[in-house]
Design a protein around this nucleic acid. Structure first.
Lengths: 246, 246
DNA sequence: CAGAAACCTTGACCGAGATCAAGTGGAACC
DNA sequence: GGTTCCACTTGATCTCGGTCAAGGTTTCTG
């Protein structure tokens, strides 16, 4: 019975695009899930899990943005993942979190208590399969990002990040993709720097440069317009206009 | 029946430490597997799969080392993964390879034709589960490496790489872990540079520096002795002496 | 053994990005 | 309205690692 409830392969009419189990559609009408599923909200800046903590839930982001961060003893930090709505958090079969998870913006998460979720996964091959596919997606994204971190210049890094956000944003509000893409940056300059392996000053300078060169337009500090996505992607050194994942 | 053959959870007596399905123990005596499982050998430098190619098999490394590499149009390359013996290659459910796979040394792989392997996976929850765990391990490793690429200095990068190789090597030949660790570098300076996001000159210089400072000892260009693993790990800026994975 | 081809080392110089420092703009709070 | 705080920008300088160049070793080949 539980199984049936989670076994939707596609929920295309749901406002959240599911990539895994269906966690959102039928939120209210299923009382019998109360003890396994629940919602949590976090404020911007709040830490959801500290590295090393026991994690007794898995879940997915409903709205807002979370980040996965690793920190060295001397304080250097590197963001290792960015969780946008519909992204999955948690590691079935693992006890401790390997990095900090923080709410970058105000955040709503749909959580499942870990043990029952694992049971569900073990008895529902479809869910295990979905989870594997999602983990492979994350692995692809992480490796794509290794190229960005290891080999791209500061300008290319910024362009790469803007590309990703623009693309994810565009696909979440699936308009007919008109030429100019408009969105609000969900990250501070410092958070971008942590993601890109740069300093916040360099981020600021490169954004200014891209603006001066007409690759992007800025209104205030966060509101971005991309007049020509193709030019941005050229700047990112990334002509494989296909499968860039976050 | 097939299922039973693959359903060994542990094969500790096998020379290859399995992290997933048991692919090696019973290589010869199972004729009925002939059509799904086979061995392939590659010479050092040979490309196993080109990025974008169809991949009609999955498998694991039996001996030797393979690398996963991404390349930009202008020739900049970044290694995004290093496959040591027992590591798994391939992406169940995916068609094309997302990066080049190359034999760094002479290599033996144990391959399974992809379609039957996927069928096996779908009917054997244990295998799917194992695969998920392995993919999570790889994801952890990739994210750990993002910190290396994004935030560590050249010297720390080299020390990190040597740590990883030393640890993997030590666990494959599980002696009682005597104080000095000895191994042969399986990578050229250029391959190390590609893994670390450096140039080969910088790699060479930093190795020389670590040698001068007594952190490592070199005999020839490849034979490394680490007198004190703890010092090396300090140099790597990596005091979490626990779970560093490749 | 000579010659060539990898692979590696070392030096000199340069530049992208880090660091240090000052200043701007806007929102919140009294 | 003024003060404070925070996020951001911009400038000046420094430094780590890249680039270019030369030379050394080892191994393979004729």
């Amino acid at each position: 019975m539980l199984k049936a409830q989670f076994d939707h392969t596609n929920c295309s009419d749901c406002p959240i695009r599911h990539r895994a189990v269906c966690a959102h559609c039928d939120a209210d009408e299923l009382e019998e899930l109360e003890d396994i599923k629940y919602y949590r909200t976090f404020e911007a800046g709040q830490t959801i899990i500290w590295s090393g903590d026991q994690m007794n839930f898995v879940g997915s982001v409903v709205s807002g943005i979370a980040s996965l961060t690793q920190t060295m003893e001397d304080g250097r930090t590197q963001m290792v993942g960015l969780l946008l709505p519909s992204d999955f958090v948690g590691r079935p079969g693992r006890e401790a979190a390997p990095y900090d998870v923080q709410a970058t913006t105000d955040l709503v998460m749909c959580c499942f208590r870990k043990k029952p979720f694992e049971d569900l996964m073990n008895t529902t091959p479809h869910i295990a399969h979905r989870l594997l596919q999602m983990t492979l997606d994350e692995l692809d994204a992480a490796r794509e990002w290794m190229l960005v971190l290891g080999r791209k210049t500061a300008r290319e890094k910024i362009a790469s990040l803007l590309s990703i956000i623009a693309r994810r944003d565009a696909s979440i509000t699936p308009k007919d993709k008109p030429a100019p893409i408009v969105f609000d940056l969900p990250l501070t300059r410092e958070a971008m720097a942590d993601y890109l392996g740069l300093t916040l000053e360099t981020v600021s300078r490169q954004i200014s440069a891209l603006k001066k060169d007409g690759i992007i337009q800025l209104e205030g500090k966060r509101h971005v317009t991309i007049p020509d996505m193709r030019r941005l992607m050229e700047e990112a050194g990334d002509d494989s206009d296909g499968g860039f994942l976050v």
